[in-house]
Each structure stands twice: as C-alpha cells, then as structure tokens.
C-alpha cells in the first residue's frame, strides 16, 4: 500500500535505474491509462458535474425547471426543518470521526503492534479482526440492532443475568447512548482495516533500527514511541484521510441502526441520512436541493482531505 520512506535508499537507486531503461513511450502509457480514464470520466466526473449543474436548477419531480442560481444552497440553510437537521447532522459526523479516530484507529494500531511481534496465532487473529468488514454494513447494523434490542436482545439479557440489570438500557433508543453505540459498532466492523494498514507499515520498518535501539537499552514502549510511531506517520495520514472520507459519507450502518430519520429523535442523524431523506423523501423540488447538498458534501470532504494530506506530507518531510 505505502512505501515506507527513508530507509531503503540503496534499493531505490536500483529501481530508478531500471525504470529508465524500460520506460515505455508516452503513447503506450496513454493507451494503458485510457480505459480507466474513460470509465472514471463517465462514472465519476460526469455525475459530479451533472450534480453541480442540477444544484442550480429548480426541479419538479424528475422534470427540470428554471435556473435558480444559488437558491437551492440558500434553502438548505433557511428552510425548516432541514435548516436544523443539517448542522445537527454535521456535528454528529464530526463526533463520529473523532470517536472513530480515538477508538477504532487506536485499537487498530494496538492490534497491529501486538500482532507484529511474531507470536503464535498471528494469522488467526488477523483473520478474526478483519472478518467483520467482509459483511455488508446493513447486515452488521441489523445484527447489532437485534443484539441491542431492549425487549428481546441478548446484551441486556446478559447484563440482567449477571446481576448488572441497572446497566441494561435501550442502547439505540436513548439519545445519550445511540451515537456512541453507532461509533462502537462501526469500529467493531472496521477495526481490521487500520490494523492491516498499520501492520504493513510496521513490517516496512527495518529491524536494524529496533535492534540498534534495543542495544542502546530502549524499552518496548520507547521503541514504539520514538521509532515505530514516527515512522508510521505516512500510514497514520492515509488512515486519517480514509476514516474522514468514510465517516462523512457514512450511511448504511447508521441507517440500519437508527433508521432513515436517525432515531431516537435525530440523535444518530448524519449527513448521508439527511441527503437520502432530501433526495428520496423530499418534496417535488427534492432533486435540486439534494444535488446542492451533495455538492456541498463533496466540496467539504474534498477540501479537508486535501488539507489533511498536505499537512501529513509536510510532517513527513520535516521528519526526514
């Protein structure tokens, strides 16, 4: 996935030399890029541009009406109740991102470090931790909503049987616990992903560095803190950006756990749900409004992703 920079200068020189002699012509490169470029243009760029155009028109069902400029964007912030739902959903997305960074990605890093040191059962645990993300988010959400069901769910039943009945609560029906539960379930599902990326990053760090540190008397923690962690910066950057994009586009799992309205009382409402409701359950002019929201979401995610990536690049180069 990522080349760990900074240690393999010798090897890099070799590959660069080889690349020069085997360099294909520009035309060949262009031909090879063409299919992907065409697909990307037709299925990614074209719909994006389309959405941008749609967002400036009035709609009546699927029939396009007059050009209205930025009116759809204005409506997003002035028309009740979307004007209240949008900021609330945005804040929830921010919580979702912070919570995921703290819980999912920290645990992912921890698991990667634990599984890096060669030990019995390494492959087994790697498979176990990555299994949940092979299941559809809708299925994961549905399974967990069954487990957390306040009437028939095994989670509360177990708590009661253990004499911890006072801890039993309607996990997804209480606004105080609903969003944290969504974050936890999402982390349960995805924790294997940062674990694999961090694992690959750790494997890319030369063992010489660790050995040298150990000879100097560094503890395991010191090796992690001062050698492995800084060298993982590029991976942390990628994990952060991917988490950010994933969380701000979250839909399936939130929908399965909290329904289309983000129950209870909007406590699990996120931007993806607001978009879905606007586009498919809104009034006759839903298309323009939903397109405007899609454009805003894209611009926000794109800008922040680029900023975060630039920041991490700068951090990397400063360390070298």
């Amino acid at each position: 996935m990522t080349a760990i920079t900074g240690q393999k200068d010798e090897k890099r020189g070799q590959t660069a030399r080889r690349r020069n002699t085997l360099m294909p012509s520009r035309l060949t490169i262009a031909l090879f890029l063409l299919p992907a470029f065409l697909l990307y243009t037709i299925f990614m760029i074209y719909p994006l541009v389309q959405a941008l155009i749609f967002s400036t028109f009035e709609f009546n069902g699927l029939v396009r009406g007059a050009f209205v400029g930025l009116q759809n964007f204005e409506q997003l912030f002035t028309r009740y109740p979307i004007s209240e739902q949008l900021p609330r959903a945005f804040v929830h997305n921010v919580y979702f991102f912070i919570g995921t960074m703290l819980i999912q990605n920290t645990l992912g890093l921890l698991f990667a470090v634990l599984l890096h040191r060669p030990r019995f059962g390494k492959r087994f645990f790697r498979v176990v931790f990555t299994l949940p993300y092979l299941i559809s988010p809708l299925v994961v959400g549905y399974l967990w909503s069954l487990m957390l069901n306040p009437l028939f769910g095994p989670v509360n039943a177990t708590l009661r049987n253990l004499g911890l009945g006072s801890l039993a609560r309607p996990w997804l029906g209480d606004p105080a616990t609903a969003l944290p539960v969504v974050i936890l379930v999402n982390a349960w599902m995805w924790v294997g992903f940062p674990m694999l990326l961090f694992g690959a990053g750790l494997a890319g760090i030369e063992d010489d560095l660790r050995e040298a540190a150990r000879i100097d008397g560094a503890s395991n923690w010191q090796i992690f803190r001062w050698i492995e962690f800084p060298l993982l910066t590029p991976v942390i950057g990628i994990v952060t950006v991917l988490t950010f994009i994933g969380n701000f586009n979250a839909f399936g799992i939130v929908w399965a756990l909290g329904g289309v309205d983000g129950t209870p009382a909007g406590a699990t409402d996120v931007l993806g749900l607001v978009f879905f409701r606007t586009a498919f359950r809104g009034g006759a002019d839903a298309f323009g409004l939903a397109s405007a929201l899609a454009v805003l979401m894209f611009l926000f995610i794109f800008t922040v992703s680029v900023l975060v990536q630039t920041w991490f690049r700068r951090l990397e180069s400063r360390m070298q």
Partner: peptide, 15 residues
Amino acid sequence: PPDVVGVAYNDARTL
C-alpha cells in the same frame, strides 16, 4: 413498552 423509543415496529408486532 418500557424504553418505547428503542422499540421498533417489528418488535411491537412481535409483542
């Protein structure tokens, strides 16, 4: 039902 906001449509029909 207790914690009614946590009780879904199908839970209710099951009750």
